[in-house]
């Protein structure tokens, strides 16, 4: 059933490419360029997805699985991931889909990201991740929308129905998305369409992934880790690994179709060094935090997982720190 990941990834790759969905830009633009276009796309996607995921869970198609809370791992890993994405020139999904558009710097960023995530989960840095996972906090859930062992969520902490917490969360983000001024940009899929498509794809992705034995929705880091284990240790490919291949192929086909594919190369070779360091920081950060901007931010936050909310705050703080250091003068 891992092949369904390929199909879902392919569609996701097209959405990412046509919508220019990059979370590194989303976070950074708000601070450096006073541009909220992509942040609004993200906010709307999170709001709609919080509802679509919960609907699927309510009807028993999926069981939500908020990631374990780990103060040390979510904060440190999240911050390092945030620093890394600025150097790498894209977030986890950004460097993945840009690899398919022929961006050669993204290849190096993605390879070092996946390789270092693999080293952190089961290679030279596995001692660190094993140690830090001792601080994981999980709870037993009795609510059927959740899996049995989950990380705490806003709804479990406040002891309110997941629907109450979700609707308040969605309403706040919708107010931000539609109640404030949006920066204009002539993109193929505008931000509203891209957000709606993501919110439709996400629960279907989760449902097919669960059928293959992996109970989680869209993700990037675990997929790259899987691909490296397939390549170097002959492990079987899983849903998330197939999803990564799908994203790259989807972005490739989409960019070829719109004549946007090109082998792009920077003039200064030092740029490659920068993106490799960035990719490695992202891999170490994401594997430590238990997820990247897709696993934690796009998929974890709509479940209102405390772990994902904390990791996301530190993704943004790390992103702002590095963006400020590199581009702060251009504000």
């Amino acid at each position: 059933m891992a092949w369904t990941g390929l199909v879902i990834g392919f569609v996701f790759g097209i959405i990412l490419q046509k919508g220019r969905v990059c979370f590194n830009s989303a976070f950074r633009d708000v601070l450096i360029f006073k541009d909220n276009y992509l942040m609004k796309l993200a906010a709307l996607a999170l709001a709609l997805q919080s509802i679509t995921l919960l609907l699927f869970a309510q009807f028993g198609a999926i069981h939500l699985a908020p990631k374990p809370l780990n103060w040390i791992a979510n904060i440190i890993g999240g911050y390092i991931f945030g620093l890394g994405m600025v150097l790498a020139g894209g977030c986890a999904s950004g460097v993945t889909y840009r690899s398919g558009e022929g961006m050669t710097t993204a290849w190096f960023a993605a390879i070092f990201y996946g390789l270092t995530a693999y080293a952190t989960s089961s290679g030279i840095f596995s001692g660190w991740s094993k140690w830090v996972s001792k601080f994981n906090i999980t709870i037993q859930s009795t609510n059927p929308v959740y899996a049995s062992k989950i990380g705490p969520t806003v709804s479990t902490v406040l002891n309110v129905s997941p629907w109450v917490a979700t609707l308040v969360f969605a309403a706040l983000l919708m107010w931000y998305a539609f109640g404030t001024k949006t920066t204009q940009r002539p993109t193929k899929f505008n931000w509203v369409i891209a957000a709606i498509l993501i919110a439709i794809l996400a629960p279907i992705a989760w449902w097919t992934s669960a059928k293959s034995g992996r109970n989680y929705g869209l993700g990037i880091t675990g997929g790259w880790v899987n691909l490296f284990s397939v390549y170097t240790a002959n492990k079987p490919i899983n849903w998330e690994g197939a999803e990564i291949i799908g994203i790259i192929l989807g972005a490739l086909v989409s960019s070829l179709a719109s004549k946007e594919f090109k082998f792009r190369m920077p003039k200064d070779p030092k740029t490659y060094l920068q993106v490799m360091v960035g990719g490695a920081l992202m891999g170490f950060g994401a594997a430590t935090a238990g997820g990247c901007n897709i696993g934690h931010f796009l998929t974890g936050v709509p479940q209102l997982a405390i772990s994902s909310l904390i990791a996301s705050v530190f993704f943004i703080l790390g992103n702002w720190t590095m963006a400020w250091l590199l581009f702060g003068k251009e504000r």
Binding site: I32, P266, E330
Partner: peptide, 10 residues
């Protein structure tokens, strides 16, 4: 050309 995001803007 070929520069990583957001170098062209900057």
């Amino acid at each position: 050309r070929g520069e990583v995001c957001p170098v062209p803007d900057v």
